[in-house]
């Protein structure tokens, strides 16, 4: 093994460190600056209690068996006379032990009623392990931090919810176009076709728009509404906008009533 003499390689290394010295560091000063987490981040699991039907699929599929669910059955009196009494599952306890949780996401994926969601919230450390078992009240609170899912990449298949809703909207639009002039609230047909709000709105909007198209009203401020909103404490901008909208609505209704009165 021969001895080494300092050569160019050492100087290049010195150059790299000097260059880094002069650049801004990449550290994020954590408690002062919160990290910018993407929407799919698996921070904590949130529960939408209203959707849960206590099917127990999440508790069964969890690899660690860290979901504790208690429930009881209740009978609901029938809506009409003579019908059968229905039984309903009522959720008593839904707890996730985050000390055991592997953050694998199988429970969120497997829930058929979309009751479990991922949230990027990660600042929930505690001083004792027992406090890491969170009950449904806390899980419900974390629902407020759940972000909407991101759009998918170009070339991806559209998700089933969106494609179903679009198909329903298209059908409803065709149906309302076919049953055109008597402004048929075929929006009802759209609503029946899956209840996707996109579908319903898409169907209702074309039908409603056709009616309003031929009435043009100059926007002015409805003074009464404006004064009332200012008195309530709304800001001037908001009050003006709502007052204008109210005026336009009243004018259009008046004109429509006139037209109907005429026809």
């Amino acid at each position: 093994m021969t001895a080494t003499l300092p050569q160019v390689g050492l100087l290049k290394g010195l150059g790299v460190t000097l260059k880094t010295l002069l650049k801004k560091p990449t550290t994020q000063q954590y408690p002062h600056v919160k990290p910018d987490l993407p929407p799919r981040t698996r921070g904590v699991i949130a529960l939408m209690e209203e959707n849960c039907t206590v099917c127990m699929l999440c508790a069964r599929e969890c690899p660690d068996w860290c979901i504790y669910i208690d429930s009881h059955k209740e009978t609901v009196p029938p809506k009409e006379e003579g019908a059968r009494a229905r039984t309903r599952n009522v959720l008593d306890r839904f707890a996730i032990d985050f000390a055991l949780c592997m953050y694998c996401g199988i429970c969120v994926e497997v829930c058929p009623f979309d009751a479990l969601f991922w949230s990027p919230e990660f600042e929930y450390s505690t001083y004792s392990i027992r406090e890491l078992t969170h009950e449904k009240e806390q899980l419900r609170k974390w629902m407020d931090t759940v972000p909407p899912p991101p759009e998918l990449e170009v070339g991806a298949e559209t998700p089933k919810e969106i494609s179903d809703g679009l198909a329903a909207a298209r059908k409803a639009a065709e149906a309302s176009a076919a049953a055109a002039a008597p402004a048929a609230p075929a929006a009802a047909g759209g609503a029946a076709a899956g209840g996707a709000p996109a579908g319903g709105a898409a169907a209702a909007a074309p039908a409603a728009k056709k009616q309003e198209e031929d009435i043009h009203v100059e926007a002015q401020i409805d003074q009464e509404v404006y004064d009332q909103l200012i008195a309530e404490g709304k800001s001037e901008r908001v009050a003006r906008a709502r007052a204008k909208a109210a005026y336009v609505r009243k004018e259009k209704a008046r004109i429509r009533a006139e037209r109907e009165g005429q026809s």
């Binding site: 987490l37 799919r40 981040t41 698996r42 991101p150 998918l152 990449e153 170009v154």
Partner: peptide
């Protein structure tokens, strides 16, 4: 993390493909 939700343990594969598609802007 933007695609799978995890930084170290991804759990992104499933039998028969992947869990879900990539988010917009990933490529």
């Amino acid at each position: 993390e933007s695609a799978t939700g995890g930084r170290l343990h991804f759990t992104y594969n499933r039998v028969g493909g992947l869990k879900e598609d990539l988010p917009r802007g990933f490529l």
